[in-house]
């Protein structure tokens, strides 16, 4: 079955190690589960600099290359304001307020992706 969606959540402070581990886990799971959609829940992230953001964006590009639609959700207002002021390129990014709306956005994008919740990936483990 390929009709599933992966929910990946980052709940700890971002470092390049954390992000790399996260990317590896996500892409591996994506292939293993043949998921069509990915939701990145970033509600637990308090600080994100431009490098972290670019890192997450390229992870999303990679997931898209593997045929999945991706949505980020739960970004905090303060984090968003500083990313924009830093000049982050947000053009192609799909974003949603919370998990529920992220599913809606994904469903509108790729209806097949949300028919069944395939599983979740939480990156709250330390590398």
């Amino acid at each position: 079955m390929s009709n599933n969606c992966l929910v990946a959540s980052i709940q700890i402070d971002l470092t390049s190690d954390v992000l790399e581990q996260f990317r590896n886990d996500l892409l591996t799971e994506l292939q293993a589960r043949q998921a069509r959609g990915v939701i990145l829940d970033l509600s637990g992230v308090e600080v994100m600099d431009l490098t972290d953001f670019e890192n997450i964006r390229s992870t999303i590009s990679m997931a898209q290359l593997m045929g999945a639609s991706a949505v980020v959700c739960g970004l905090r207002p303060g984090l968003v304001a500083s990313l924009i002021l830093l000049g982050a390129d947000t053009e192609e990014l799909l974003a949603a307020r919370d998990l529920d709306t992220a599913f809606e956005v994904l469903h509108a994008r790729a209806p097949g992706a949300t028919e069944r919740n395939g599983g979740s990936l939480a990156s709250d483990h330390h590398p």
Partner: peptide, 12 residues
């Protein structure tokens, strides 16, 4: 434009 980009990141 920055405000609109920011609101979009919050799903709005």
């Amino acid at each position: 434009i920055k405000v609109t980009k920011a609101t979009r990141l919050m799903g709005c």
